[in-house]
Write a protein that binds this DNA or RNA. Structure first.
Lengths: 165, 165
DNA sequence: CGGTCAATGCTATGGAATATAACAATGTTT
DNA sequence: AAACATTGTTATATTCCATAGCATTGACCG
């Protein structure tokens, strides 16, 4: 996010209303408006930016939130299973899990029947934290819903996004 | 409050007695399917992944493609103008422009009336390269169009994405 | 005119996400 | 028993993105 005050070049006084040589008007951006990937990226960045802002004081990142959600719905699963479901490489998943464990939100118990694997479980604090996060996220989704113009639009968008997977 | 959620991996019904040991059920992912940001990200990653694959032999990245498009539609603009329009920091834009210039696709001419600024122009090779890229991208958009199920769906998706900006 | 501030392009740098390689321990298969 | 696969892990490289600061140049103001 750019917080800089992007100052426009100061325009010279132009009382006559004539066109100035250095007048800089808006750029033509039609070529990008037809690119699905570009629009997808802009929208995703916008939504993620809001997420980061909303969850800044909770110090929760999008990936971490999805990890907590998935463990809550699938307690006892191995790291690789959760990571695969989220499209995260298990090597990178280690750091994620360790960070959440360091904050006391999850445990890595010994998996029954496989001494290599860690069975992931939320702790009590993890469940409480997730509940708070869910509430916050609910508000955010509500905002997005109103931006989209209603539940019909939202579910339509989700359906269309699914077809791109 | 008590927390005794020690779930073992669920066993599926197994009347035939086969495939029990290694059987690992699919995870429950309903919690993520309702998250707009998550779905947006997955869709965007999928589309970008295809872009990278399609343009691998042309060695063209999404950001570079958008830069070429914007310069083609707005020749003579300053670096900062192009960068701002694409949401790219001017510091990071330098590397982008230099790379494209090194490949002979654009020029940084002295801007008329401002000796600080570079006026960006496509070279002949840049125009030719962009034409080839446009053709390739056209095919890709066509694929996405059929995935979405028609032009109506596509324009609806674009409209919905716009509301998230 | 001189002084102050802003803009432009640039370099350097750090953080975050992502990808691969390799390893020890363990499990599976032959 | 031997060969191979999986799991978690570390190390590392790359890419993207953000900030700070610099020299040059321009705009503004007294």
């Amino acid at each position: 996010m750019e917080y800089n005050n992007v100052c426009q070049p100061r325009k010279t006084e132009n009382p006559m209303g004539e066109d100035l040589i250095n007048e800089s008007d808006a750029l033509r951006t039609e070529s990008t408006t037809g690119i699905l990937g570009y629009r997808l990226r802009r929208a995703q960045l916008s939504v993620f930016q809001r997420f980061l802002q909303v969850f800044e004081e909770m110090r929760l990142r999008p990936a971490e939130y999805s990890v907590l959600l998935l463990i809550d719905d699938n307690p006892g699963r191995k790291q690789t299973e959760i990571a695969d479901a989220l499209g995260i490489k298990r090597a990178n998943f280690v750091t994620l899990v360790h960070a959440l464990q360091a904050r006391g939100f999850l445990e890595r118990r010994a998996a029954a029947g496989d001494r290599r694997a860690n069975a992931l479980h939320l702790t009590v604090e993890g469940v409480q934290f997730l509940a708070a996060a869910r509430a916050r996220h609910e508000d955010m989704e509500q905002q997005l819903l109103s931006q989209l113009g209603g539940e019909a639009s939202r579910s339509q968008l989700l359906a269309l996004l699914d077809r791109l997977g």
